[in-house]
Design a binder for these strands. Sequence first.
DNA 1: ACAAAAGTGTTGAACGTACACCCATGC
DNA 2: GCATGGGTGTACGTTCAACACTTTTGT
Lengths: 229, 229
Amino acid sequence: MPFAYDYARPALTVDCVVFGLDEADLKVLLIQRDLEPFAGRWALPGGFIHMDETLDQAARRELQEETGLAKVFLEQLYTVSDIGRDPRERVVTVAYYALVRLGDHHVQAATDARNAAWFSADDLPRLAFDHDVIVSMALQRLQGKLRYQPIGFELLPPKFSLTRLQQMYEIILERPLDKRNFRKKVLSLDILEDLEEVEQDVAHRAARLYRFDERKYRQKINDGFNFEL
Amino acid sequence: MPFAYDYARPALTVDCVVFGLDEADLKVLLIQRDLEPFAGRWALPGGFIHMDETLDQAARRELQEETGLAKVFLEQLYTVSDIGRDPRERVVTVAYYALVRLGDHHVQAATDARNAAWFSADDLPRLAFDHDVIVSMALQRLQGKLRYQPIGFELLPPKFSLTRLQQMYEIILERPLDKRNFRKKVLSLDILEDLEEVEQDVAHRAARLYRFDERKYRQKINDGFNFEL
DNA sequence: ACAAAAGTGTTGAACGTACACCCATGC
DNA sequence: GCATGGGTGTACGTTCAACACTTTTGT
């Protein structure tokens, strides 16, 4: 035991709620545990922080190691510290949430042969530890933040139709939106670039494609405008 | 060194940004350090977490010990983990912010004779560690949250005039509000109880006093209404 | 009577919401 | 030619923003 301290210290870990969007659902990425406690149960990807990295870096490293995901949107969520949350010992966990483009990344099972899979956010299996609580918090945060920050684009491919954009909002906010009003609103924000390009290989009229213009968005933010739904 | 682990662990602390409101300013409570590093500098109250308490409990305990404050509004803010933020060793800190009624609590200097004092939020001295960053985050959070959650009442005495309520919003949001519009809006929310009572000992027309009706507020929230400035 | 702050309504502009049909394309 | 989703405008109600004078009370 080479590391000794005058006072007891909790173990410190990061866990990550990774969201992805498929055609019809918001998905969460889970890892199947192979060790006790909760062997066999699904859990959030995560692990111990190293001494030479920040929490953000640890979250990215763990994501990379356990799921192969890199360069994703990542934001700190909450730090949980209930006494009995890990039956082995005192563990404090800093929870993060991440948004990824499902198409981009083939989620690899981790190197150590643990199973990784996407589950619908509204139909999750029983989770290890207090990970169900963490997922609920992440969902709430995502829903809240989506309204006034353009983070939803992180879930879509770079080119998308307005219908797809609307679906994304409907799926996450869990309520239908009016098509005409939605288009009016989102176009009036003037942060989408019309790519003058249309969908390919669809069995109906092809939709125009747009791109989120982050440059323009930042510009407008600086000029004191504020995004909302 | 009675506590030994297989892997190195960062120290884990809680720090607290305590806000109070006086006549004209938003104040932050600081403690003067008597030990290195940063001896003599002002810093946020805080300290190490114990193994038998949650982070919330630790924050409350530290507040009690260092400033005598108890039963305040307290909410987790962010966890900071930059490598060099404490020059002695690796320290990860979970930051909280608290809202207190200045009148209620006489802030005592801590038992160990450290100095405690209130400073205007917009005119703080140089702070120890990265506490200036934490204070900025807390301010941003307070400003953001104030708009859509009735947390501002935590800074006011139980009985207050509409003018005082308006001042609170103006001070924190750092912009003037229209008196008539403000009153119309806040009364229309129907979450204030008119106490049918007026200010005493003022050198002009006495203002009606109101109380925040938390019961009514929760009721309305349940019925799907949403508060907004 | 004067100083100081309390209290009170209206109007125009902007925004949100509800709503239905024609268009383009692939099969 | 038909099925599928793409794309479009208007009218109404609600909310927001701007604005100034009278009332009450203590000195």
